[in-house]
Design a binder for these strands. Sequence first.
DNA 1: CCGGACGTGTTCGCACTGCGAACATTTCAC
DNA 2: GTGAAATGTTCGCAGTGCGAACACGTCCGG
Lengths: 261, 261
Amino acid sequence: MHRSVRALSRGLALINELNASGPSNVVQLARRTGLNRTTCYRLLDTLREDGYVTFDETNALFGLTPQVRTLSEGVSSRDLSSQAALPAMFGLLDEVSWPSDFGVFELGSVLIRESTHPFSPFSVHRSMVGRRRSLVRSALGKTILAASAPALRREMLDLTVSLVEEDAALAKDRRFVDDILSQTKKDGYASSVGGSEAGISAIALAIPGGGPVLGSLNLIFFSSSMTPELAAKKYLPSMRAAVKEIERRWSAANKARGKLA
Amino acid sequence: MHRSVRALSRGLALINELNASGPSNVVQLARRTGLNRTTCYRLLDTLREDGYVTFDETNALFGLTPQVRTLSEGVSSRDLSSQAALPAMFGLLDEVSWPSDFGVFELGSVLIRESTHPFSPFSVHRSMVGRRRSLVRSALGKTILAASAPALRREMLDLTVSLVEEDAALAKDRRFVDDILSQTKKDGYASSVGGSEAGISAIALAIPGGGPVLGSLNLIFFSSSMTPELAAKKYLPSMRAAVKEIERRWSAANKARGKLA
DNA sequence: CCGGACGTGTTCGCACTGCGAACATTTCAC
DNA sequence: GTGAAATGTTCGCAGTGCGAACACGTCCGG
């Protein structure tokens, strides 16, 4: 068995933090990552030498350079669902201005695969892709649950119970889950208010895609600017169109793949 | 002075390699990064524990997970020019199917900021963002040169001479540079055949954006499928429309920014 | 059938890397 | 003008991370 390399984990945590919070000074970074301040200096210097980080001398701020994208850029090309989703999400962003995320079920929660957060004038977050949302509390998760066949749904909930500690109780609560299902089916969409973060609401649609549900698409907005009901009234048609387009691209991509194989 | 942390640099090199080449076995990774094989195991195990890497046991292949995008996703949101470019590039991809890159001049060469490579059915490369192209040999670079005012152009070339060893001779060659300018101005676009990679051609347009040139946009295609002249005939109108849209979004974004400041 | 080329996975002792307490200095609020 | 909170640097030592070496499976050509 190989031991793990502490210095690498720590360096990546730093990049993560810089990415999530933007340019920061050393003390902030040290506090938020829990690292010793000197250790931060050393790691940041390394990242700077390698071209991933810049240092603004006048304000003593460290920030990421576009080069960090050499670490991840190729990943999405392997993922057909994301490839299908992102172009449609840009279309949606053009129409409604609010950001949206595309997520898939994985290991008991929803993994966000693509996002137009960085491109929306109303975005609060910097980084969404790779983060997770609750299966039973987020709009993204609830709509996937409601769109799945009962047997598959059971499996998903079981996974949540065993893998996601903070959702285990809710996922076991039959009543709670049934309420999600009936509410979502009645409305035709799922919603959440202040779920992942105070002041932020979302509505979401599942992407059926033929077989087992592909994933789901949400739309994020400020709770103060409108209720989920109003958002649904204004934006559901656009979202439905986006879902349709994702399904179209998805099946087109699959067909192209079939030819190769 | 802080010394640098070798383990971190090595780990990042591994991610880079995985990103550029896709899932690989340990020996390939060790060879390509120049690391000891055991060191690779140790670093990869660390990355796996942290969720950045998966291991396919049956084929003994290591690959990146979508989580690596938590390292970089937020970066583009700070960069207005990229924010303006990507949506337009998706539109272009929809029309022509060939991938394109958006690049800006930096430190004597062109830094690729956005790319639709991962989304094109014809893409050869996995990862383009963050890589660099020659100022004097790539289509992307030549069109920026031709679109810049003489004084600025001189400065750019000087930077290239002093910072980019392999281009220094060409950048100093007055005749060579003049040829680039007259050719590009005559055609209305710049091109390259097999410049960065054998069998790959490109044509490119500058994005003026009012003041000093914003950057440039290229279109990539197989040299065997058509000549640059033919590509220009077929695709220049679409590219020009994309350039227009980028400029539009750019000035809109700047206006919005002005209001905040 | 056997050697040797090439792959995977693991062990372990030691050197040197990376750690962080401690110190010097500046900035700023009150 | 004084204290609280930054930034930036030094340096001796613990222990992390290193990689040579080992064990094993598989494929291929002579």
